[in-house]
Design a protein around this nucleic acid. Structure first.
Lengths: 251, 251
DNA sequence: ACTATAGTTTTCGCAACGCGGAACGGCAAT
DNA sequence: ATTGCCGTTCCGCGTTGCGAAAACTATAGT
């Protein structure tokens, strides 16, 4: 194929785009809804989706709507195992100790991906969908991981992603962020003070030596995760991070 | 497309076949390994895999091997949410009560799919990969679910799948299985006595009214899950099944 | 350091496969 | 019964996916 398009096999791109849109829609959507958001013609979508239905990655309801199919579960689990499932018992222990939601995130390309989460038992708690992707500058885990990278690599990443504001508190100036990364590298942890989401505070610690650049974090409402409780909680997070690092290095 | 192949879009089929083979290989494989198991030519695999790498569903290691990529995690989670994530707290409670591994499975097409699992805290415990698919006749959950179906539907399913033996204890005669399904329907639960795996016993109870035909089960080594402990455990499983049913009906 | 081998990646001509406009079918509302 | 909306099917066309051959890279052995 002399004139290969830069993106690769077009039908693959389109099929996965449709799967992502199904996930965006809560796992279920109609053909017209998919046509509306994707801009593809109905018969094209139909043919791709029909193939996915036949294969088991999409399922059609009796009301003709399409949902994500069960064959995706195993693929997701298997992919998850490459990243965060091994960390789950440690996260659970951290939640027991500090009583807030614990997360493990990795840097994948230019994005932070949450790969494991053990939620707090409080009714009011952080819920970050496993698999969710965010830009690193706006999150505690992202900043923790960036602090471990050479600064020219960070600059290159930021020039690709920009620094869009998630909230009025998000750091949107590259020099300001780089300065804070220097500080984070020294102190060994990062804070997210309503930068990702208003009213939410997060402590994040990078893991050293994991096959993939990773960070562990504790997050919760800033009414509970106060400056004072941060000082109490930090040693626990650091301790778990050390044990996660040991575990990752042993693999 | 006048000569549409019965299976749909060929490149989609091939790509997902490769993803499944990656999962089969523990999440990681080389190009040659994939060529060996799939029978596709190397450049074909390369082009499909390259597209998946670009999209984030596959990732290439520094040692040139390919692993499943993080973008699959969200798809898997979202698909999982269609099925079993809501059941997890109930399963955890069941494990607390009976101290054996608890599972939730659904009937998807002709197969049983394990969609949620909370493992026992014993070192020796059942581990069934979430997303794993098995034929229904050879499992407790499968038999529990089949017992809820009209018998001609069961006959049709069995004629499609056959009744291959997983172990010497597996029921491989259709009439014998249908008779046991009649009994299971009356008593409200199914047992798997080393039919799926030697040395493993399982109690399974169907859920009524779930959007998808489902069953909850407790499984463990038959040295611990004795006939006597089955009698003790059964009321707990039935109680949780009732609560899961109530929860499913409420959605 | 050099060579051989195995595995991965790239190139490019070709035809088959994916595409999408048009037509058809099913369902719900009036 | 009619109309409108949505999903599904049909089929001609050309672009996209395919794979043999060549080029490149990594590793192991001498």
């Amino acid at each position: 194929m002399a004139r290969e398009s830069t993106g690769g096999v077009q039908s693959l791109q389109r099929a996965f785009d449709l799967l992502e849109r199904l996930a965006d829609a809560g796992g279920e959507a109609s053909l017209s809804e998919l046509a509306g958001t994707s801009g593809l013609p109905l018969p094209t979508i139909h043919r791709l989706i029909r193939t996915l239905v036949t294969l088991g990655y999409v399922r059609q309801n009796s009301n003709r709507r399409y949902t994500l199919g069960s064959r995706l579960i195993r693929l997701g689990e298997s992919a998850s195992r490459q990243f965060g499932t091994w960390a789950r018992p440690f996260l659970a222990q951290l939640v027991d100790q500090v009583e807030e939601t614990a997360n493990l995130a990795v840097l994948d390309g230019d994005e932070v991906v949450y790969v494991a989460q053990v939620p707090s038992r409080h009714s009011m708690r952080m819920f970050t969908e496993v698999g969710r992707r965010l830009l690193p500058h706006g999150t505690g885990v992202g900043k923790a991981m960036l602090s471990q990278l050479p600064r020219d690599e960070v600059r290159a990443l930021l020039s690709r992603t920009g620094l869009p504001a998630y909230t009025p508190n998000t750091i949107t100036n590259a020099d300001e962020l780089l300065a804070s990364l220097d500080q984070i590298a020294v102190q060994g942890y990062a804070l997210d003070e309503s930068e990702q989401e208003l009213g939410v505070r997060c402590i994040a610690v990078p893991l050293h030596g994991a096959p993939t650049l990773s960070a562990v974090s504790v997050s919760g409402p800033d009414s509970r995760l106060t400056k004072e409780s941060v000082a109490r909680i930090l040693p626990e997070v650091l301790a778990i991070a050390k044990r996660l690092t040991d575990q990752a290095t042993r693999t």
